[in-house]
Nucleic acid binder design. Structure first.
Lengths: 346, 346
DNA sequence: ATTCTCAACGATAACGTTTGCGTGTTGGTA
DNA sequence: TACCAACACGCAAACGTTATCGTTGAGAAT
């Protein structure tokens, strides 16, 4: 297993100095055509490629950006990564990924690993546990060390950094308004417990939309399920809870679910109860993933444009990385949601 | 935006040499307790963290492994990454990701970027375009430069490296055997064109399973759809082709689809044609993703254990990276598939 | 008094680059 | 013959570490 060839080896082999080789390969006019050709030919033959690590050390920049997300087996996050990767690569940046698995400790450890010189900046979405504990010291420390951060989707306002967010409140309104337009009179929501801001905002949007149309919100039409039920293992429990909701409130003719899984599960349960979709019950979800598209019936849902979010986040970060000035204002960019109508609504 | 503190700065501040600081922080017994305490306190206060880049340069290893996959918005690949990440992190490695988007050029460019010192080894799955062009020079060059590679899922035998593969042939047999056991008499397959080995193997498994039971294979029961139809945009065309298949051969009572999407689309089309699943038609898919689990009816499918594949691949790679000997044999590890029975079969 | 032995620390090389500057060798001109 | 550009190249510093080897001084042993 031979090692990669270096400038030094080329220099020794051709009996010139290291500096000369470097200049020749960078096509400096300081070097004569003759030697340049010789050196370049030699380098090409041995497939010389400069060592990025050495360059990173010298230039004090790594040309890679770090992504830190709670999980990867998740359509939305994958889409965001795709977006980030696209603009990053276009600008000559690599992308390195850390997974927190929704754990505070893993988030901290991963940040420290990456912040130790491996990357030029972070794009991240906060883990649930961190959100719960409200301990944000690792973010502030990283920022204080001069490393720019861009947060997306799950953000907290306390931290001074760029943010790219989804207008969850407005998105939820769009969804509920659609149901109202379609003459639903009793609209339920299936949402999560409150500590993740995203779920809270969607719930609030639901309430505001109803109020705006002078429909009263009934607490028994608001089903807050435990987050853990989103994991695949607890799908039975989730089904039971939804079933109970529908049985206890047979008047429900519209459901807004704060994610895909809740939505398709609702449709599944409803069908088992003999309800026709969308005739007896209309359903709108959140997040435009594979489930929404390929469920039967296909799901009307609020798309967050994950790829776009990634693109914008990467753009912001790279801009900040490459900017010289050291005290720019922080920006918060809102990516509009879009209601994608399919078969689960009339 | 202050920069990170370095050994040199600490040394100057405390009026000792750089070496002393380094030793003190690594708790060398060469340094007196007194100075050690002083230096360590100072370093802690200023939150000193060694610069990974400098360490990488010195140690000639980066402690990060590169993943190169065709796409990330894909349940199987996400699962593999999850597995890789888990064992990599456990062993102190980071993970950096490159996406080829099924393009040969992007694959080559990404490899060159990463191979330029950023990583210690590769885990990759070959892009379709590369498979088509059969140009594997970039893999061989990378290997020749002393960088270990582990391939998974989509592999080619020409390249001398470790491989982790799915037993596609056996998996397909399991699926088809299940249909035969369930008394299907006319079993169709929905597969892709032949150039990706994975699809070919699954088709072959289908044929062998039928032959083993002395059922004749009819070419009109083998639907080879263009790969591009797997992309979301061409879903209509895909539906049309499947519809034609089912209409032309109404005797079909079992379908084996080589991926999730084909399977759920088949179920959707069948239902539109008034067929009951699994009573009139039984369907088995390949890949255990969200679609399989949450489709209605839920899909019987062949699981490839993506996470396991990632874990094994990472294990092999790290072992090779950390091994001293430079001419070990290459290994090919087959991960068993598992038939997961759900509602789409009897 | 001289040598020896540690303890405690400093100096330096090395990892692979890039780059500004110094320097030796040309050739041409006065 | 003497001088001066221009050319072509070498030297060395710097990025931040770690490890090897010196070096210094003090005290102990001879």
């Amino acid at each position: 297993m031979k090692r990669k060839i270096t400038l030094k080896q080329i220099a020794k082999e051709l009996d010139v100095s290291i500096g000369t080789v470097s200049k020749a390969l960078r096509n400096s006019k300081e070097i004569s055509e003759e030697t340049k050709e010789k050196i370049q030919a030699f380098a090409k033959f041995y497939n010389y490629k400069p060592n990025n690590i050495a360059l990173s050390l010298k230039n004090r920049k790594t040309k890679t950006i770090g992504i830190l997300i709670p999980e990867i087996v998740h359509h939305f996050f994958s889409k965001v990564i795709q977006g980030i990767e696209q603009v990053a690569n276009k600008k000559g940046y690599n992308v390195i990924i850390g997974l927190s698995n929704e754990s505070f400790d893993k988030e901290v450890i991963n940040m420290e690993m990456l912040a130790g010189g491996s990357i030029d900046g972070f794009i991240l979405s906060i883990s649930k546990e961190t959100l719960l504990q409200q301990d944000y010291h690792h973010f502030n420390e990283t920022i204080n060390q001069g490393m720019p951060i861009v947060m997306f989707d799950r953000v907290v306002s306390d931290i001074r950094c760029d943010k790219v967010i989804v207008d969850d409140l407005e998105g939820a309104k769009k969804a509920v308004n659609k149901l109202i337009e379609n003459h639903c009179k009793h609209i339920a929501i299936i949402t999560t417990k409150d500590y993740v801001s995203v779920g809270r905002l969607r719930t609030q949007g639901y309430i505001e939309a109803l109020n705006a149309h002078e429909m009263h919100t009934q607490s028994d039409l608001i089903l807050k399920v435990d987050d853990k039920l989103a994991s695949e293992d607890y799908i039975d429990v989730l089904e039971e809870e939804i079933k109970a909701l529908l049985l206890m409130n047979p008047e429900i003719d519209g459901v807004f679910a704060v994610n895909e899984l809740y939505a398709v599960t609702t449709m599944k349960v409803a069908r088992k109860l003999g309800k026709k979709i969308p005739d007896d019950l209309q359903v709108v979800g959140f997040t435009d993933g594979v489930l929404s598209r390929h469920a039967t019936p296909s799901l009307t849902t609020v798309s967050q444009h994950g790829k776009k979010i990634g693109e914008v986040a990467a753009g912001l970060l790279i801009e900040k990385i490459e900017s010289e000035s050291l005290d720019e204002p922080v920006r918060t960019i809102v990516i509009e949601t879009e209601l994608i109508e399919r078969e689960s609504t009339k």
